[in-house]
C-alpha cells in the first residue's frame, strides 16, 4: 500500500456568516503523518471534515494525487477516519463494527472474516471481537475504531483527536503504536489535536492553525527553533516562549528593558521572544523571583523584570528561593524577532 499526495488549495468554509476557514493551502507528501495543531475553534477539525467529505467547502479544491475529490461523496474518497468519541456502533459487536465498511462494499463473507481478523490481530483486539463496544475498555474501543478505519485499506487516514479520551498512560503507548502502524502501512495521515506534545511526538510535519488560517507548516523541530509568527511562538513549546512588545532601535527596547541585538536589524515596532530554557543567569538584566515550580530535575521560575513577567528554567544545581534577585542574560543567538504584525524577521546572513 502506498500513500497519496494530499493537496488542499484555497479551502474556504463559511457557516452562515461565520468564516471558519479563510483559505487553507497545504500539500502532504505520500506516507506522511501531518498534525493539525491549534486551539479549539481554529478550524482544524473543519478542515478534516472537508477532506472527509462531511462538509462541503465554500470555495477551494482538494486533490488526492492529481484527482480532484472535493465533489465526491465520502464513500468514494477512499478514506479511513477515527473520531474522538470513537463513534463505534453500539448495537453491533466489535467484529461487525470493524466489518461494517467491508459489508457495505459487498466483500465476500470469507474475505470479510479474514480481513477483520487480520486487522484485529494487528491491533491486539482479537479476543474482544464478539463483544459489544460498551463492554470493552476505552483503549480497546479506540483500537476498534482504528481497525474499522484501516480495514478497507484507505489511501488517506484521518484522526480526529483519537487519543484525548484515553488515560494518560495508555495515551503514550497508543501514540507510539499509531505512529508505528502508520509508518508500516505508509498511509498519508492527518492527526487533529490540540495537544502539542502529541503533535510534536507523532507528526512528520505540523500545521499550526490559528483562527481559520495556517500560521506555519513545518517539521516539529523547525516550529520550535524558528516559529514563523508570535502565535506559533506562544503556542508551541512548554513552557511557552516569553514575548515582549517593544521597539527595535539598534537594540530592543520595551518599557524599562533594553536588550542588545546583533547588528543589522531594521527599526520600528515589533516583538522579541526568548524561550525560558534559553535564558542564562550571567547577565545584566535584574529580575526578582516571584514563584518557583519544581518540575523534577530543574525548576520553572516566574520572574519579574522592570514590570515584565517572564518565565525561565533554572539550571541544574542552582538554589533559588522566592524573592531572590537574579541577573539575566538573553543570548543574542537565541533571540526570536518578530515585526509589528507578529511575522518572524529572518536572521540576516552574516
Amino acid at each position: 500500500m502506498t500513500g497519496v499526495t494530499v493537496r488542499l488549495e484555497g479551502l474556504v468554509k463559511h457557516f452562515g456568516r461565520v468564516q471558519a476557514l479563510k483559505g487553507i493551502d497545504l500539500t502532504l507528501t505520500p506516507g506522511e503523518l501531518v498534525a493539525f495543531l491549534g486551539p479549539s475553534g481554529c478550524g482544524k477539525t473543519t478542515t478534516l471534515l472537508l477532506i472527509a467529505g462531511i462538509y462541503k467547502a465554500t470555495a477551494g479544491q482538494i486533490f488526492f494525487d492529481d484527482r480532484r475529490i472535493d465533489h465526491l461523496h465520502p464513500r468514494d474518497r477512499d478514506i479511513g477516519m477515527v473520531f474522538q468519541s470513537y463513534a463505534l456502533y453500539p448495537h453491533l459487536t466489535m467484529f461487525e463494527n470493524i466489518a461494517f465498511p467491508l459489508r457495505l462494499q459487498r466483500v465476500p463473507k470469507a474475505e470479510v472474516k479474514r480481513k477483520v481478523e487480520q486487522t484485529a490481530e494487528l491491533l491486539g483486539i482479537s479476543e474482544q471481537l464478539l463483544r459489544r463496544p460498551a463492554l470493552v475498555s476505552g483503549g480497546q474501543q479506540q483500537r476498534a475504531a482504528l481497525a474499522r478505519a484501516l480495514v478497507k485499506e484507505p489511501r488517506v487516514l484521518l484522526l480526529d483527536e483519537p487519543l484525548s479520551n484515553l488515560d494518560a498512560l495508555i495515551r503514550l503507548s497508543a501514540r507510539a503504536e499509531i505512529r508505528r502502524l502508520q509508518k508500516e502501512l505508509g498511509i498519508t495521515s492527518i492527526l487533529v489535536t490540540h495537544d502539542q506534545s502529541e503533535a510534536l511526538a507523532m507528526a512528520d510535519r505540523v500545521a499550526v492553525f490559528s483562527v481559520g488560517e495556517v500560521e506555519q507548516f513545518a517539521t516539529p523541530e523547525e516550529l520550535y527553533k524558528a516559529p514563523a509568527t508570535t502565535f506559533v511562538a506562544g503556542f508551541v513549546g512548554f513552557p511557552p516562549m516569553n514575548l515582549f512588545e517593544g521597539r527595535f532601535n539598534g537594540a530592543f527596547e520595551a518599557k524599562g528593558l533594553k536588550i542588545p541585538l546583533s547588528p543589522g536589524h531594521p527599526g520600528g515596532k515589533g516583538y522579541l521572544g526568548i524561550r525560558p530554557e534559553d535564558i542564562r543567569f550571567d547577565g545584566e538584566i535584574a529580575a526578582r523571583v516571584l514563584l518557583v515550580e519544581v518540575l523534577g530535575k530543574d525548576s520553572l521560575l516566574t520572574l519579574e523584570a522592570a514590570g515584565h513577567i517572564l518565565k525561565a528554567m533554572s539550571l541544574e544545581g542552582m538554589q533559588v528561593a522566592i524573592g531572590d534577585e537574579l541577573l539575566l542574560n538573553f543570548p543574542v543567538e537565541k533571540l526570536h524577532l518578530f515585526d509589528a504584525e507578529g511575522k518572524r524577521i529572518q536572521r540576516q546572513a552574516s
Binding site: 471534515l49 472527509a52 467529505g53 462531511i54 461523496h73 465520502p74 464513500r75 478514506i79 479511513g80 477516519m81 473520531f83 474522538q84 468519541s85 463513534a87 463505534l88 456502533y89 453500539p90 448495537h91 461494517f100 465498511p101 457495505l104 462494499q105 475504531a145 474499522r148 478505519a149 478497507k152 484521518l158
Partner: peptide, 29 residues
C-alpha cells in the same frame, strides 16, 4: 444519536439511506 457516529458511517461508505436503516433505526429500537 451522536453526530460522530453518523459521520463515521458516511466515511465507512454508507449512503444516507443505508445509514438510516442499518445504524440509526436499530439504535432507536
Amino acid at each position: 444519536l451522536s453526530w460522530e457516529m453518523e459521520m463515521a458511517a458516511l466515511v465507512d461508505g454508507a449512503s444516507r439511506w443505508t445509514l438510516f436503516w442499518r445504524i440509526a433505526l436499530p439504535l432507536v429500537r
